[in-house]
Nucleic acid binder design. Sequence first.
DNA 1: TACACATATGAGTACATACTCATTGAATAA
DNA 2: TTATTCAATGAGTATGTACTCATATGTGTA
Lengths: 107, 107
Amino acid sequence: MKDLAKFIKALGDASRLAIIHAIGQSSCSVTEIIQKTELSQTLVSFHLRTMRETGIVTTRRDGPFIFYRLTAPELYGLIGELSRVAGFENDIARATPYFEIVNYKRR
Amino acid sequence: MKDLAKFIKALGDASRLAIIHAIGQSSCSVTEIIQKTELSQTLVSFHLRTMRETGIVTTRRDGPFIFYRLTAPELYGLIGELSRVAGFENDIARATPYFEIVNYKRR
DNA sequence: TACACATATGAGTACATACTCATTGAATAA
DNA sequence: TTATTCAATGAGTATGTACTCATATGTGTA
């Protein structure tokens, strides 16, 4: 059974927000996601699995690559709204609304 | 200190969603929240604490009562949007108190 | 004062989750 | 075939979190 709490919980992690930010509203291969987020391959794969299972992302294979995209592209903007509502509007990036939204840490 | 992932994580729990639903866009005393959610006093208090600390709710004392409200009332609608985007509009959650969040109307 | 009511808090527990490392599988090219 | 690249998976660990029970604190009234 689908569960809203579970879905939202799957959004509430810095690494997964970084992945969502990397994907944006188009799509990305896993390799691209790894490069953009600077997270390890294993960790990206680990998170993509739960994001697949909660329906946040869907996949398409193209040769050796697997492309991920948001199942609902509007989700990207909604997370931006959440960020604004949470009071993050004065963070680093008002001009690039969705960049500072994702406050993921670099390694 | 502020952290979007932490904020969203604090939304991703069924008990806390129930509390948010109970509060709605106005405010409620803890006693009212307990009655509406049918959660234990201790558990409600436990969750309200983390919701206070993440800035989801704010409080006002009135005599022996402490009233809680959403710091940002728009959050209520946004959760409805998330629910719709997640594809819950026809979910079994119709029978539960979470339903009204699920069926929040767009502006 | 004493008492009742409203709410918060500390301790303890069981489970969930994020992460790393090592390995495996799947697709392609030489 | 072998080798290479892309991606997923299993095991192990450490931390986080949701919850319960008992207790404490705050507030108003008799």
